[in-house]
Amino acid sequence: MLDLQGIAKHFGGVHAVDGVDLTVKRGEILGLIGPNGSGKSTIVNLVSGLFPLTSGRILFEGDDISDLPSHARVGLGIARTFQNIRLFGQLSVWQNLWVAQNSRQQRQEVFFKRWFGGSAGVQAEIERTLEFFDLAHKRHELAANLSFGEQRRLEFARAISARPNLLLLDEPAAGMNAEEVDQLDARIRKMRDDGFTVLLIEHHVELVMSVADRIAVLNFGRKIAEGPPAAVQDDAAVREAYLGTR
């Protein structure tokens, strides 16, 4: 579904991502892990189109999307969450979801209806998303006034509202307590069962080992291992990257 071919991103002399090949297959949860500064978040930013590639290509469903602006990539079905939460703080929970709702269908609508239509057609869908993320009782609350855990759930809910095929989760468990991580684990599994494909960037190794079908490991902007969780766990290069050499 997503095919990264030798992608690289250099910031001046820093090679944040340095020639990574990675394939995400339809319907799988691919975990992407690595020590701090290994280039995980940069990959998410490249796939979602926040900065241009230095070299390489990004294919989505077989089409080269390397030069598409980020809003167009959402239209094709790639949505993401942010490691540092980026909600619309002065909009209500409900409005946050409305902004993202149906951005795929909307692209097919004529210009006038896309911009001057109201929310009538999407209310049921927003309600379902609110229920699933246990935010229904907070619908009129401003996003800025939610607790940290609720803001994380809303980020997730907003990404789902764009009805993506591919969901990029950038450290969704950051700052969560054990109970919240368990709920997150269940939600990610449910997403896969509902037919989403997930690229999960995460520091929380337990979570990744638990939900991911396959894991890729980055270090210094390069991929050092890829495979099923158990194999990656035993990989010598991975142990070295995390623990150092003796």
Partner: peptide, 25 residues
């Protein structure tokens, strides 16, 4: 009441996140 209105307010608060909600700035 319209999508343009909500998009306008979203862009003013979080330009990057609104692009990633599919809004053309």
């Amino acid at each position: 009441r319209t999508r343009l209105g909500i998009a306008t307010r979203a862009v003013s608060q979080q330009p990057i996140a609104s692009q990633l909600c599919g809004i053309s700035i």
